[in-house]
């Protein structure tokens, strides 16, 4: 043995420290370096196209100013970016701003399709948190070839909407009309279903996402004032500023469904209690939802809380003569009606 073990130990710890600095999730040097290189010219053009497309979709105009805010670059840079896009035939000057050419529109549709499909994928298949779908999709949309996009769409079963409720353009560029109107257009006491959350202004969007409001949710408007708008859902109350709430698109709740609005969740059942499934939360999506239905948990099914695990987290439920373990996170997404007495 040549070297003192203490020195070796120090060297070993040093190597581990260096590896940590390099590869630490998010803050590691490798990661920082990667995100620095993300903002290439093409990426900028594509983001600009998307912004203009979204504006046209909701019939707003795009100006140098709005675009520079969106891309967080100076107006001078934005102007030269627009000039470059114009020379490539992607945008054209209009009377009061800029608009997409046919070619620009087709390009934008491709990017939007990729973006929304990726979001759908991330939401359904990866278990990333709601506020992360968009961030990842922003990155992935640029590096996905058209063939990959189509493969993704096939894999997901050609979905129609992204997880924020926005329609996904079809491969040949057809896109459904926007659905719903801003939540601010309703009145106190109204029952509404969230159809879409507009993501164009990210800071507003992320406030809504942080509250956990998603398309498909049924809300009752408790208060509507210029200062704030208050909603309630099955368990929670949400308070949003009107600017934020105006990003929330909704339709009135269909009349035949109104009596369903107040329910308990499956996770609130105590061991031995029985409930009847009423519906799934809109947060229960894709494969999860299908798997539940395959297991025989569908609206109308009787279900009994049967068994606690040592940590109390997964619980076993008795459904159609079978004991099935579900995590509380999933049981939170199943609305039930508690039954009196044992079944």
């Amino acid at each position: 043995m040549t070297m003192h073990p203490g020195i070796l130990l120090a060297i070993g710890l040093g190597v581990i420290a260096i590896l940590c600095i390099l590869f630490w999730p998010r803050r590691g040097l490798v990661n920082l370096w990667r995100s620095l290189h993300l903002n290439t010219r093409r990426t900028r053009i594509e983001h600009a196209l998307k912004h203009m497309f979204n504006n046209e979709y909701i019939q707003q105009k795009t100006t140098v100013k709005s675009l520079s805010v969106k891309l967080s670059i100076s107006q001078r840079h934005t102007a030269s970016l627009l000039a470059r896009m114009e020379s490539r035939g992607l945008v054209k000057k209009t009377r009061d701003g800029y608009g997409l050419t046919e070619e620009g529109n087709a390009y934008a549709l491709r990017i939007v399709r990729a973006h929304r499909l990726w979001e759908r994928y991330l939401a359904d298949e990866t278990g990333l948190r709601g506020d992360e779908w968009h961030r990842y999709a922003e990155r992935l949309e640029h590096s996905t070839s058209p063939e990959q996009v189509e493969a993704l769409a096939d894999q997901l079963g050609q979905p129609l909407y992204d997880p924020h409720g926005a329609p996904i353009p079809s491969a040949d560029g057809v896109i459904g009309p926007p659905m719903g109107q801003p939540a601010t257009a309703f009145a106190t006491g109204d029952l509404i279903v969230v159809t879409r959350i507009d993501k164009e202004q990210e800071h507003l969007y992320s406030q809504i996402a942080a509250e956990g409001i998603v398309p498909g949710m049924q809300l009752r408007i408790l208060e509507m004032s210029p200062q704030r708008i208050r909603f309630s859902s099955q368990q929670n109350e949400y308070v949003l500023a009107p600017v934020v709430a105006s990003r929330l698109m909704a339709i009135p709740l269909p009349a035949e469904k109104t009596e369903e609005i107040c329910n308990d969740t499956l996770s609130s059942l105590k061991i031995g209690e029985t409930g009847k499934v009423v519906r799934f939360s809109p947060n229960c999506r894709g494969a999860e939802r299908r798997r539940l239905m395959d297991l025989g948990i569908i609206p109308g099914t009787l279900i009994r809380a049967d068994l606690n695990s040592p940590f109390g987290d997964p619980k076993a439920y008795f459904v159609r003569e079978t004991s099935i373990a579900l995590r509380n996170k999933l049981a939170d997404l199943i609305y039930i009606e508690k039954m009196k007495g044992a079944a």
């Binding site: 999730p25 278990g127 997964p314 004991s323 373990a325 996170k329 999933l330 997404l333």
Partner: peptide
């Protein structure tokens, strides 16, 4: 699940 395979635990079911 914090680096290369980022994501939260997905929802699962298990028949007993």
């Amino acid at each position: 699940s914090n680096t290369m395979l980022r994501g939260e635990a997905s929802i699962y079911s298990l028949e007993l």
